[in-house]
Amino acid sequence: MSDIIGFIIIILIFAVLVKFRVIRIVSKNGYKYKQTKHELNLTYKKFNGFDYYYFKFNQGKLITLSYDVEVQEGELILEWHDRKQLLWKEAFTENTQGSFTAQTHYRRYSVRIEGKHTKGGCRLQFTENGSQ
């Protein structure tokens, strides 16, 4: 009997940790990606969770992030980070295209992709616009 109670307590603790996002469960169904030096293409039948992709740029340049997001269901959140701060973040619930430009101060940057029970895909492309 004590084994069953212990098991139930462990399950309840796990459920609470998932509920408060201390533990995150990532599920990817039909998830395909292609990453090049300055481009990322994703498609997925179902994506719930998050993933990181990394890029390098020259310092002191203006970089434009162009995005083309397809959301058939759910929500997709895109974030662009440098080493110390969030540069840009946007949540998408419908198909959207756009761009955002930032000055580079470091070499290494990351893009965080978070899907909330989403279906669709996205295309991200970074272009260098020169220096400021």
Results as ranks from 00 to 15, higher is better:
E73T: 14
Y67A: 04
S99A: 13
Y31M: 02
A91G: 04
L86I: 05
L87C: 01
G115K: 05
E114C: 05
K116H: 12
N29H: 07
G30Y: 07
N48V: 11
T118W: 04
K84G: 01
K45T: 15
D82C: 04
V111F: 02
S66G: 02
T127Q: 11
L42D: 03
Q97M: 13
G49L: 07
K32Y: 14
H117C: 06
D51Q: 06
F126R: 03
N95Q: 05
K34N: 10
G49W: 09
L76A: 05
G30V: 09
S66D: 08
G121N: 07
I113D: 01
L62R: 06
K37A: 15
I25P: 00
E73V: 14
K116R: 11
Q59R: 10
Y53P: 02
Q85S: 08
Q125A: 14
T64R: 13
Q35A: 10
L87D: 00
D68I: 12
V16I: 15
R24L: 11
N95F: 10
E79V: 13
Y109V: 04
G60C: 06
K89C: 05
D82I: 06
S99F: 15
Q72G: 06
G115D: 05
F92H: 01
E70K: 14
K19L: 15
V18N: 03
T104L: 09
F126P: 00
E70C: 09
F126G: 02
S27M: 07
F57E: 01
C122Q: 06
E128Y: 11
H105D: 02
F14H: 06
V16E: 08
G121C: 08
G49T: 09
C122A: 11
E128Q: 12
S110F: 05
R21C: 08
Y33W: 12
T93K: 11
I25Q: 00
F20A: 01
T43I: 15
A102K: 11
Y67M: 06
G130Y: 12
L40T: 06
G120W: 07
I113H: 01
Y106T: 05
D51E: 09
L42Q: 02
E94R: 08
V22M: 10
E114A: 12
E73F: 13
S27C: 04
A15M: 15
E39I: 12
G74F: 11
A91H: 03
F47V: 05
Y67R: 02
T96E: 09
H81I: 08
L40D: 02
D82H: 04
K119A: 11
S66W: 11
T127K: 14
L40I: 08
I23A: 03
V111T: 05
T93G: 01
K116C: 06
H38M: 14
N129W: 12
Y53K: 04
G98L: 12
K56T: 13
T43Y: 08
I63S: 00
T43M: 10
K89N: 03
F55Y: 09
C122P: 01
Y33N: 03
G49I: 09
A91W: 05
Y44F: 15
F50D: 06
F14K: 04
A102L: 10
K32D: 07
Y52W: 10
Q97R: 12
R112L: 13
K37T: 14
K56G: 04
L62A: 03
N58F: 14
G74R: 06
E94D: 07
L87A: 01
